[in-house]
Structure formats: C-alpha cells, structure tokens
Design a protein around this nucleic acid. Structure first.
Lengths: 143, 143
DNA sequence: AAATAAAGTTAGGTATACCTAATAAAGATA
DNA sequence: TATCTTTATTAGGTATACCTAACTTTATTT
C-alpha cells in the first residue's frame, strides 16, 4: 500500500523529471520542504516498493508501476486544481489545496468530479453560468 | 495547533453529544474505529489543549473554545457533503470522503465552495442545470 | 592529482498516532 | 454488600515521518 507521503514524493519526482529531465534528492527536498535525510529515507522506501529504481548515490528512474501511479496522482491533482479554479480559488491556493485534497478520495468522487468539471468546461458560451455566478457573488458582497 | 486527528475526534465527540446527549470513550472508539486506549490518549490531549473538560473516569464537556472549533469542523464537513452530493456522489461516499477532505483546506477554498454550493442551491427550477448535467452523463455512457 | 565543495547517507532522537495486554475504577446484579 | 461485568487507564511497543549532526561519496576547482 502507498501512504499519502509516498504519493507526495512520487508526484514531486514526477514533476521534477518533467521540468529538469532528471531528479536529484536535493531538489526533492527543496520542493517538498523537507530535509535531505527524509528524502533519502523515502527514496529507499519507494525503491523497496518497486516504484523507482535506485542505487546509492545514483539516479532515480521510475518503474512501470511507479510511472503509472505517478501519472494517476498527477491527473488527480490537475483535476482538483481545475475544479478549484472553476469555483474561483486563486491559482496558488488551488495548487496547494489540491496537494492536500488529492489523497484518499473514493473512485466515485474522482469520477463525479471529473464529469462535473468536464460538464462545466464544455458548456456553450451562451449558458453564461459564470456570469450568473459572478453576479451572484457581487450581490452578496453588497449586503 | 490542532492536528487532523484532534479535529476528527472533536467532530466525533460533537456528533455523539448531538445524538446521544452524552459521550462515552467507548462510543468514540467505535465511531472512529480505534482502540479505547487511543481514545484515552486523545481525550487527555484535547483536555490539555482546553478543548474539553475532563476528569478521569468522568464525563466529557466542551469548553467554549472546543465548542467553537467543533462547530466549525462540522459546518465544513456538511459543506463538503453537500457539494459532493451536488456532483452526484452517493450519500455514503460523500460522508466518508468529506471526512478526509475537510482538513487543511485554505479559507479561500472554503469560502469559494460555500458560495458555489449556495449559488447552485439557489438556482431557480427553471435553470434545469441538473437535467442538463444528467443528460450529459447519459450521453457519455452511450459512447 | 589533491583539496574543497556539494550532495547523499547513517546514526540517533522527536512527535504523532496506533495497537495489545494488563490493571484499575465504576456500575449492575445476585 | 460482594461479585461480576463493563468501561477506562496505564504500560510497553510498532510504524510513519520528521529533524540535526556527523560522516561518506561524488563532483568541481585549482
């Protein structure tokens, strides 16, 4: 089983891989704001659980299993960010809140949220729901 | 500072208080599916942090501070449940997922979610957004 | 190539939260 | 009231995840 934390590290590694093309323990530490020993420990754990391939002082490479999981986590993260932005949360809070929300949610909720976000995104311009929503918020402000 | 766990216990105590009129450590243990020693430990901690008043082998009473926090947590929980139900999650999953989602979310997200749920709930019947949404899901099913 | 700097690991320790087994207190019943 | 049952606590131990300080390995510079 994967813990919340393993998921966070996998996601961080995925993002670094994506951005820099390689992954250094130091960068993981910086991104997650933890100490380097903490990263060492988690790398060992992820390696033992076959999410990554790793040799001491060497590089980090995803296994198929790890890649699949990392992608899944990343998708879930983006889904939450998208939703949060739809309801008006700022980019920054959307990012940090998504990191917290994305764990331990039932598959049903993921599916529903996905469909809801899709539905909203695909609404025709003419529906104007967003304008209505903003108008609603404005009215509330004035009370 | 309160941890995620303290919040879970406070919420459980609040709900039991509400339902039975009094709170026994045993009931907390059952509701949260933890052992009774775990409950003893948390009761001690909550008491030390002035969220509840407690004496060994005695009853549990909220302080003002504890009451306020418990209410806040409960409201947040209900907000998530409401939202999850709007997007079509079953009552049961909505309840369990809300328990997980309700922690560590930024105030901005709470506000946005609240306003969004309010907005959706107050839409006139004539808006028919729900029908559109269901129709959208049905069409997807058929692909 | 040797010295220095940077990156990674190990050792040892903290905090949270959990558990089982054993013990103590309270409450119910014979 | 004494016994038995239920409930609560303490003792002792596990697992996760974190930290600092000390050490090792790798990489860079001179």
């Amino acid at each position: 089983m994967t813990t919340r934390n393993m998921e966070d590290y996998l996601e961080a590694i995925w993002n670094l891989q994506d951005k820099k093309g390689y992954v250094k323990a130091k960068d993981i530490a910086e991104r997650l704001e933890v100490s380097r020993p903490s990263v060492s420990g988690m790398i060992k754990k992820l390696s033992e659980n076959n999410y990554i391939l790793y040799e001491k002082y060497g590089g980090i490479v995803f296994t198929e299993k790890g890649k699949k999981l990392a992608q899944k986590i990343k998708k879930r993260h983006n889904l939450f960010v998208e939703f949060l932005k739809i309801i008006g949360v700022s980019e920054q809070n959307a990012q940090t809140d998504a990191c917290r929300l994305e764990h331990d949610v039932s598959p049903e909720t993921i599916t529903c949220l996905l469909e809801f976000v899709e539905f909203i995104s695909l609404l025709p311009e003419s529906s104007k729901w967003k304008e209505y929503f903003q108008e609603y918020l404005k009215k509330k402000d004035m009370l």
